[in-house]
Design a protein around this nucleic acid. Structure first.
Lengths: 265, 265
DNA sequence: TGCCTGCGTTCAATCTACTGAACACCAACC
DNA sequence: GGTTGGTGTTCAGTAGATTGAACGCAGGCA
């Protein structure tokens, strides 16, 4: 298999791309997605990405025509076609369909808030959410990103990687993002947790991202070849959480994970 | 559509794009999204889009580097970055947040399955779904597309357009897509319904997309300037649906629509 | 075995898309 | 009023992306 196109060097910009206009267009989309307000002017984008204004103007025109972005007065924002494309991606994932089906009929999980996520670098992206308990609603939405160190699924997925991959993502001394007093702070703490997770086969998150909320998570065994690595999690209020219930949920999570991991379903 | 015209630029845009590479890259994404299996080879894409193989190869490399597509062996498929971007679009829509909030506290709607959708040409795209009743689950997912003529929201959104816009989308004699025996079949039937919807202020769908399922829908009054036109719908089983309950739901839908239409919330 | 027909990749020549300075415009400021 | 700093747009010249034929390779078939 084609070995490695190693060379990744420091990508960023400037480095040659086989189709620079496309690479820059993608950078525009990311810049818009990353901007707090979600709206940027032509000049903003040109400045931020280091692209001449005239070139940026051309890119924006082409992106607008494809409805990948929208013009709102002087500002530009992401376009609705992206919703379609994102949905097309998700609808092709059999795992998501199976996820919904299983949650609906599982004895314990069917009454809980369950999520399926995928690993994306040092973040996880939530793909789907099953809400068995309408009263407890999460503020998180499908497609949201979270740093791996801050959530149960993230740690579960990390535990599946090889140690040298983990070390590459989190060199010693890395400062981790912090959201609560209990958030992990150093790469060392994270690696210690990974060991525990591998031993017990699931991850536990204890108010590390949200006070009052705990989370159990398991990885989905990577089925054969390609495709992103997936993980499952259940979220519960710490106040009502019990170890016995946790054991039941982990059991069902693992069963679902096994079924997702088997191409045969 | 067997319209494989030879050579360049018979493609969508009669005239040249300000950034052809970007336009073509967008076409690649759409082709992948539209393909039944979601996977196409380089040659497939080159053939379908009328782009030379070598150019297509460059586009794909750039798209892959941006993670907008993934390589799976010899095939290409949509990439996970699209989930992120689509989610970024949705997270910027205050309407979606407000939609969830309102549904959770509304007396009648809080126990129903409610959806918010947006108009996109002659289709609607579902943006979010509130499930107040875990037992009844829809097979549809967020981001799915539906022909306007086949669902309540579609008809409600259509009724908001000017007559000449409707005529442009559905010239007389247009054959509409059909999913059940009750689906509308001609542009004339559709236009007749539009008149009714405008009179009564909401749309009713009676098993036109799924047997056994009815649907009530209202448009969200377009708030001022730009932005897509939005619609709301409640789905119910025909077996348990009553006119009184319907009246209550329409009342709440309209209240939510009014609140979404007002920039002040 | 040899002959196809399919795939993706390569490369030098060409033509086109990118550039950057100049432009027109608006609003705020002095 | 004049000036400054901001926006987006224009256009001719040139750097460089695009191209199509040629290539290597793998699988199907006789």
């Amino acid at each position: 298999m084609a070995d490695s196109h190693t060379t990744r060097s420091s990508e960023g910009l400037g480095s040659s791309s086989p189709a620079p206009a496309v690479t820059r267009a993608a950078a525009v989309l990311e810049a818009l997605a990353g901007s707090p307000s979600g709206r940027l002017t032509l000049s903003d984008l040109a400045r931020e990405l280091g692209i001449p204004k005239s070139s940026t103007s051309n890119l924006l025109l082409a992106l607008e025509e494809a409805r990948l972005i929208t013009r709102q007065g002087m500002d530009f924002a992401l376009g609705r076609k992206l919703v379609e494309l994102g949905a097309a991606y998700l609808s092709r994932m059999d795992e998501v369909q199976e996820f919904y089906r299983y949650c609906g009929q599982a004895p314990t999980l069917s009454g809980e808030t369950v999520r399926i996520a995928m690993l994306d670098g040092d973040h996880v992206i939530y793909l789907a959410r099953y809400e068995g308990h309408p009263a407890v609603r999460l503020t998180s939405n499908i497609g949201d990103k979270m740093p791996v160190s801050l959530c149960g699924v993230g740690k579960a997925l990390l535990a599946q990687l090889h140690d040298h991959d983990i070390a590459a993502l989190f060199p010693d001394g890395t400062e981790l993002p912090v959201m609560t007093a209990k958030s992990l702070r150093t790469a060392e703490e994270l690696k210690a947790q990974v060991v525990t997770i591998r031993e017990q086969g699931f991850a536990f998150e204890d108010e590390e991202s949200t006070v009052g909320v705990v989370c159990l998570a398991v990885p989905v065994p990577t089925h054969g070849a390609h495709g992103p690595s997936l993980g499952l999690s259940v979220t519960a209020l710490k106040a009502t959480y019990s170890a016995e219930q946790g054991a039941l949920m982990v059991k069902e999570l693992k069963e679902l994970a096994r079924s997702l991991g088997n191409p045969m379903g």
